[in-house]
């Protein structure tokens, strides 16, 4: 464990908590893409299959349980509890255009052609594009609530911090995982446009409103 990865995990944790607070406090899921949350649930389920087979640390197990639990709770809030406030018309990204290529790529490019490894690789590739339905929804509605912007900033920062973690681990431990790094770079690049808007607008107290 290193400071970059710890900050990354805390940023990821903060994003999930911010999202839950937004939903619970406003009793609304307006502006939140249910499809992205379903993709994140798929990512966590696929990645944490080893939850019961390989024990890394208490921290690792607790975080995995928390991530899986909260993402399914988020889906419950979107599609059941606050269903009336879910904006399905604007949440229209075709996720099959993500899942099929990512699934194919996981079969072709992985560290080891073994079931658990291919599923892990699938979760890494899927996570790098899982935010697209959410960013697509914001571009369609033309705006994002400030609290949603904070959620996205924390979520984008988490993988950017993981990139720093991988640089550190490369020099400190000789650790290098090309698949995770490439997917992490793609994932972070997808947020760049949003990071720019966040820093130039939200940090100055303005709201993010894209030219519709």
């Amino acid at each position: 464990m290193n400071i970059f990865r710890l900050c990354g995990d805390m940023s990821h944790l903060a994003a999930i908590i911010i999202l839950l607070l937004k939903m619970w406090k406003t009793r609304s899921v307006a502006g939140i893409s249910g499809k992205s949350q379903i993709l994140f649930a798929t990512v966590f389920t696929a990645r944490y299959l080893d939850l019961f087979t390989s024990f890394i640390s208490i921290y690792n197990t607790c975080m995995k349980v928390f991530f899986i639990g909260t993402v399914y709770f988020t889906i419950y809030l979107i599609y059941m509890k606050f269903k009336a406030t879910y904006d399905s018309n604007h949440d229209s990204f075709r996720v099959e255009f993500l899942i099929v290529p990512v699934g194919g790529l996981a079969f072709l490019v992985n560290h080891e052609f073994a079931p658990l490894e291919i599923i892990w690789t699938f979760s890494i590739y899927l996570e790098s594009v899982a935010i697209l339905p959410q960013l697509f929804m914001i571009s369609k509605t033309g705006e994002a609530e400030t609290i949603t912007s904070h959620y996205l900033f924390a979520l984008g920062s988490y993988r950017a911090l993981y990139l720093c973690n991988w640089i550190y681990r490369y020099y400190a431990e000789g650790f290098f995982d090309l698949i995770a790094v490439v997917a992490g770079v793609v994932q972070t690049i997808l947020y760049c446009d949003f990071f720019y808007l966040y820093i130039t607008k939200v940090m100055k107290g303005k709201k993010i409103s894209l030219p519709a």
Binding site: D50, K64, W120, G174, F176, D177
Partner: peptide, 10 residues
């Protein structure tokens, strides 16, 4: 460099 077995990151 070796990649991580088992995957020890979240």
């Amino acid at each position: 460099c070796e990649n991580n077995k088992p995957h020890d990151e979240l």
